[in-house]
Design a protein around this nucleic acid. Structure first.
Lengths: 345, 345
DNA sequence: AATGCAAATGAAATCGCTTTCATTTTGTTT
DNA sequence: AAACAAAATGAAAGCGATTTCATTTGCATT
């Protein structure tokens, strides 16, 4: 770890190391990539030489020659978001543990940006790729297929098993929430959601809610669906809007948890009491859910698990192991204080 | 953007494009890197060929030949943290806007991991590097210097101008908070902080507080300094601990904002009222600060700005422009409800 | 038309590694 | 000790771009 003898001139190359160790470059390469096949004796010599010259392999050269970059890409909607950060952190941890380097980009829910980023990453030779959600340009899949790049879609499950996915069933999860609220006696629902068109998870959650309602002969008109960028602030506004309707909902299902926080905070400003006047649910179970007053009834999603499993899957795939895709992950409704039966008007 | 004619066999190389366009590979290279020097006529031919074959340059080959990877690295303590995410998002946005690809890693405040990641990134040929904080292994600086890799330290300022920094003065910011509280009449202080040894920002904030106190003849004993990993949950525990002292503090300065949230939530459990029974301050002004009850008096730090400026600086540096480092950024105390004069015993 | 100069292009070496194939060394078996 | 298979090593050909240097082309000028 001492860095006393850093060579200030040109960096040492594999050739330099080979010369110093008195072996051929090929042997150094083997030492690096497949140590088992080099004899202990030469292994030692090479080891010495590498340390002495502070040799660091030139990754681009390796990539060029081997067609493997030892980089894995991840494209998420946003880096600045509690929604993906835990998964990304877990992903990065696993990825780097396996000796890979992580390349990331955020696309702000914009398909064109995503496409651009993917092209850039592919050009850089990433060995595998993590994507969020299930709706991606067909060209992307074609590209990944053509280049034989393993990928995985996260936060989602494909019913048709078209693509490898690691996530949970958003539709069912949302349906469970709706059912829970209906069991409490609610009939007048509203939903605060991220953009339905651009965010397939949001879309599926909406479908889940609508299906569940339909099964019990209920429905939610479009007026009670408010689409917003994800943030607590937007949740506040959406809540105010919804509660100012002539016929306000008795239960508000938030497609993303920050909306729920915003709604709860805003309820205090409006002099409303949760859950007496209106029930609110979240989605994800972030740290604030249990601390806020009233604490939030929500569905807990396995965020780090998604990240870690995605990494494991891709790495296994790269290692040549044949991997079974994990079955859709479980989610769980965490019942806290923010829901109650609707008041008798 | 159509991907109808993806070549399923080997990807097209520059040679293929050259052949198709009836020019030399060198000319294609010029078209890509320095379009001004190729004639409009050939430019058109090459353009056609590239589209037709769906050619994507091989980044590793470019890197090898040009010694520029068009990748920029960033190492942050944690990806799963509201503290760095906004900056990182802004950084990534600028970086990719300039045509670079972002490589990230998190080191969990562990110097050894950081060193490992940097080596890996350097091996991958990153053109520039963002680091957080000011305390890094000397070997790192040597390596970056030897390889001539521009870098920037963020969230900090070096008084000695040893290294390029983009951030604010943590010491002064914390001192301001302490002064504000002393102005209110406080004399019995406590601080909840991240690990002082591993986190230089935390350390500087502590120094700022201590210095400010000293200037007014006050002090804070070590018993009133609680070091914890950054989270609201840890903030709760620390708060409970501090308030159970025989002589509890009247003001608690939180070195990171999640601590403050935890403290405020826990105060309710303990039947204490903020700010009547104890004043609390945060650090960063995250979204929750204005929504929580009581709203949090805190210091607002320019997070996106740090990320964006860091990117601008590095990119300018890479473009060969001579860049003036921005002066330390301003921070501002946002006075809200969580502080008040100490109660009369 | 001849001249000269700048602009545009091409040829070929090079970047640092991997990998195939051939060769040498080692160790085991008879 | 001979014979042979297995293990270890070496030689050399790429991988796909960039870049220097040389050459050709195009245009304006006389």
């Amino acid at each position: 770890m001492k860095a006393t003898d850093i060579n200030l001139s040109k960096s040492a190359t594999m050739g330099d190391v080979a010369r110093a160790a008195g072996v051929a470059p090929a042997t150094v390469s083997r030492y690096l990539n497949n140590p088992d096949v080099v004899s202990p004796k030469t292994k030692h010599k090479i080891d010495q030489a590498i340390r002495a010259m502070n040799y660091v392999p030139h990754a681009a050269a390796r990539t060029l020659a081997s067609k493997k970059s030892r980089m894995i890409g991840a494209i998420v909607p946003s880096l600045d978001s509690n929604l993906f950060a835990p998964a990304l952190e877990a992903f990065q941890s696993q990825v780097s543990k396996a000796g890979y380097t992580l390349v990331v980009a955020s696309d702000n829910y914009d398909a064109e940006q995503e496409f651009k980023h993917i092209n850039q990453m592919v050009s850089h030779g990433i060995d595998a790729l993590l994507l969020v959600g299930s709706s991606h340009d067909e060209a992307i899949y074609q590209l990944l297929k053509a280049k034989q790049i393993p990928y995985v879609l996260t936060w989602t499950t494909t019913p048709q098993e078209e693509h490898p996915c690691i996530g949970f069933n958003n539709k069912i999860a949302a349906a469970n929430v709706a059912n829970y609220l209906m069991d409490l006696g609610h009939t007048k629902f509203a939903m605060i959601s991220n953009n339905i068109k651009r965010n397939d998870r949001a879309h599926k959650r909406l479908l889940g809610v609508r299906d569940a309602l339909a099964l019990r002969g209920l429905s939610m008109s479009d007026e009670y669906l408010v689409e917003r960028p994800i943030s607590a602030e937007q949740g506040r506004e959406a809540f105010r809007l919804l509660m100012s309707r002539s016929e306000p909902p008795t239960a508000i299902i938030c497609g993303s948890e920050p909306f729920a926080y915003g709604a709860i905070f805003e309820s205090k400003h409006l002099g409303l009491e949760v859950p007496r006047d209106v029930s609110i649910t979240g989605f994800d179970d972030m740290w604030l859910a249990s601390l806020i007053t009233p604490s939030l009834t929500t569905v807990r999603t396995p965020q780090q698990k998604v990240g870690a499993l995605a990494a494991d899957y891709l790495i296994a795939k790269l290692t040549g192991k044949d991997v079974a895709l994990p079955t859709p992950l479980e989610v769980e409704i965490i019942v806290r204080e923010s829901c109650a039966p609707p008041s008798k008007h």
